[in-house]
Each structure stands twice: as structure tokens, then as C-alpha cells.
Design a protein around this nucleic acid. Structure first.
Lengths: 226, 226
DNA sequence: CTTCGTATAATTGTATACAGTTATATTTTA
DNA sequence: TAAAATATAACTGTATACAATTATACGAAG
């Protein structure tokens, strides 16, 4: 076999996990929607054994919840949860920013500059979908630089949940976001740990306010339609 | 059925999870020790299906790791991981302390006083095992008061890992710990969010230093004996 | 018409069997 | 004797079958 080709014999369990997770994050499966194992297994053309393992993983990540009768449903949403997600995220992103400021090389700064520039450019073009994408890449790059596996693992899960809320309540970035990333880059390049942490925390907490506002609006329109 | 009696028909999966987790946290299963599903299932007198679900949960919590050949072993330990665990924990305990300071009632303060007093008393008696136990209860009580499910869930997992390191490297609390809890109680009772957060962070980071020192010593003795 | 009880169906939890893969033991060859 | 090749054993991944639980449909009683 070609040495460069990585054999990606993906297991049924992992396939199911990825597939179902995507459906939940994209809100194809809506909050509180019930899920039956047999039906889903048939749909994915696998047996219940690996499906159950996939579902358990999603359950532990709290993207699905198990009811007292043992049956599964897609996790509910709440303003309280959004606040918690962003509050915890702000602290962990703060750690990451500080550690990244400490460890980043000149090449890392160049990479981050690229993302910051793309954020600025797409923000000017009012392409907020792209702003969000490059924003994620900016943060994800910091994750790598920080080398803090414990924090990064938690952050990835938090970000999954946040992604679902984003799709659900349609909250988007603003022009401010662009400036914030530029300012962050600046202090990180200066290896200013302390300010990197503070600014990152504030940056994330600002995003929280947008998210909360959007979700409240979403919940209002939902209540009107019932 | 009596309304007060809670039916605790524990599943084979949950039984296995609890049992194996305990063995790992108590270091009956040592770091890097291989685990075979068949053998363990026989030992616990259950089939591989629920055992695998239990093992997957432990794997996701990183108390066991899956090797490239698909086989499981007890998670390794490292100084780097200890630092990450405590650093993340310090931030989350900081959030918790701030939120608890905001929300705590007079009765909560009385409960916390009890724990703080027991910490002081047992510290005076040099019963460091008891100090550790009441210390945990002090923190756990704050978790409840904070009502931050997201942070608490993560903290419980971090604390499991920390417990394993404690058992492995035998690091214990000191007299200082006692004073720190008293001081924490004081600012929380005054509902001083800001200082509650700062002091809690410092408190946890102090514990980190003890843990790191103890683990390094443990690793040294391990290397000498090989 | 509603409520209760019972039978039936649907769903989850667990055991077992088997297929596919990886490691180990054995044999063969130089 | 050492290395390579092959056979055997051990182990994991998945499917299927069955047991236990929960929900639903239906009929009887009030």
C-alpha cells in the first residue's frame, strides 16, 4: 500500500457519531425531538450496537439526553445554558490566549495575521458567514499554539454546543469582532500574557451578549407561533 | 410501592463504569496497565456489550486510552497533565466561587462554616485525610450554590483525575489549606464576588504546586527502581 | 363520556455469535 | 542460530437474538 495513504477504515460507531452530531448541530434534528435507536440504525444502515455507542457519546456530550424512561431526545436549549457555555468558554479561551502569547513564534504570528486580515476583509464585504469561519480558525490556531490539551478538549465540546445555538438563533458577528481580533493579535505578538487573557475574556463575553439576545428573540417568536 | 423509595435498578453498564472507575482512581489498576474486555467482563459477570459502553465512557473521560491497535490501557500520567488539570480547575473554581458568592444565602454560609470549622479542627489534629475530605465537601457545596451545571460537570471530571494523582503521588493538604478556606468563607459571606474569584484561583494554584512537587518525586523514585 | 384495566406493540438493555484484525507461537529457510 | 514465513491464538468490532421495560390501543365498567 502507498505509504502516504492513510487508511481511514472508519468504524460504524464513529461514522454514526459524526453523522448524527452534524444533524443535531445543523438543527436538522430540532431540540427535544425524540430519537428511536432502531429507526436511526436502519437509516444509517448499521446495527444498534455501534449506534448505541455513538448515542452514548452524544449523550455524555449532552447533545442528546436520556429521559427517565430510557429513551433519547435531542437536548433542549435554554438561555441559562448559553450563558454558562460562554462564561466557561471565556475563562478557558483566556487561559489559551495567555499560554499562546507565551509560546507563539514569529511564524505563528504570521498565521494569526492572515486570519485577522481575512476577518477584516470579509467583515468589510459584509460576508458574516466568512467572518465567523475565519474567526473560528483564529481561535483554533491559538488552541494549537497553547498546547493545553485539557482546555482544548473542553473548548471543542463547548464550541459544538455554541454552534448549534448559532444555527438555531442565527446570531452573527459584527464589525466589532474584526477589531477585537486585531487587538488580540497585537498583544499576543507582544507576548503580553496578561492583556491577552483579559482581552480574550472580554471578547468572548461580548459574543455571549449577542448570543443571549438572539436566543431570547428566537424563543419569543417560537412562543408566538404556538 | 412506597413513594419515598427510589428504585435503583442500576444497569450493568453503570455498575461496570462505577466499579472500573473506582479501581482506576484508587490505582488498583496502574497507569498504562492493559485491559482486555473479555477478561474484565467475566470478572464483573456481565457481557461485553454493556462493558464496552462503560469502557467507552471512561475513554471519553480519558481515564483509559485506546491504543492504535484498538486495545485499551489505563491512562498514563504526566506532570504536564497535572498542571493543565489544576490550571483549568483554578479558572472554573474561580467562576464557581464568584457565582456562589453572588447567590449564597445565610443558611449556605452556615453550611460552609461547618465545613471550614471541620477543616480547621482536623488540620489541628493532623488528620490530613479528613482535611482533604472536608475540603472536597466545602468545594462541592459551592458547586451546588453556584448552580452552574456546565462548569460543575467539567469540574467533577477534573477532580476525578486529580484524585487519581493524589492516590498515586500521595500529596496532601497542609495547615495553610485550613486558613485559605477560612479566608474564602469570609469573602463569600460578604458576597465579595471579585475577591472570592481571585482567592479561589490562588487557592487552587497553590494546590497545583504541591501536586507537581509530589508527582515529580514519585516519578523519580519510579525511575530509580527500574 | 370518562376512567380504569388489560392486551398488544414498540423500545431499550443485555447476551451471544461471528467476522475481521492484531499479536503470538511455530515452522521453515538461509 | 537468526530471520522470515506461516499458522494459531487472542482480541476487538459488529450483527443479531432475546429478555425486560415502557408506551399505546382497545374494551369494560362506572
Amino acid at each position: 500500500m502507498n505509504k502516504n495513504s492513510v487508511s481511514v477504515r472508519i468504524s460504524a460507531k464513529d461514522f454514526a457519531y459524526q453523522e448524527i452530531k452534524e444533524r443535531i448541530l445543523k438543527c436538522e434534528y430540532t431540540p427535544n425531538q425524540p430519537i428511536a435507536e432502531e429507526e436511526l440504525a436502519k437509516d444509517l444502515k448499521i446495527s444498534r450496537t455501534p449506534l448505541r455507542e455513538a448515542m452514548q457519546r452524544l449523550e455524555l456530550e449532552e447533545l442528546v439526553v436520556r429521559q427517565t424512561n430510557g429513551r433519547l431526545k435531542v437536548a433542549p436549549v435554554s438561555v441559562k445554558e448559553v450563558r454558562e457555555l460562554f462564561l466557561v468558554r471565556s475563562m478557558l479561551e483566556g487561559i489559551i490566549a495567555a499560554e499562546a502569547a507565551e509560546k507563539c513564534t514569529e511564524q505563528d504570528v504570521r498565521h494569526l495575521s492572515y486570519f485577522a486580515n481575512m476577518i477584516k476583509q470579509t467583515a468589510n464585504e459584509r460576508d458574516m458567514e466568512a467572518v465567523s469561519t475565519f474567526g473560528s480558525q483564529f481561535h483554533t490556531y491559538l488552541y494549537e499554539v497553547s498546547q493545553n490539551k485539557t482546555a482544548v478538549k473542553i473548548l471543542r465540546q463547548l464550541n459544538d454546543h455554541i454552534m448549534r445555538y448559532r444555527r438555531l438563533a442565527h446570531f452573527i458577528d459584527t464589525k466589532e469582532t474584526s477589531f477585537e481580533h486585531e487587538a488580540l493579535l497585537e498583544v499576543i505578538a507582544k507576548k503580553d500574557k496578561h492583556n491577552a487573557e483579559l482581552m480574550m475574556k472580554k471578547h468572548v463575553l461580548k459574543a455571549m451578549e449577542k448570543a443571549v439576545t438572539a436566543l431570547k428573540q428566537y424563543e419569543n417568536t417560537m412562543n408566538e407561533n404556538e
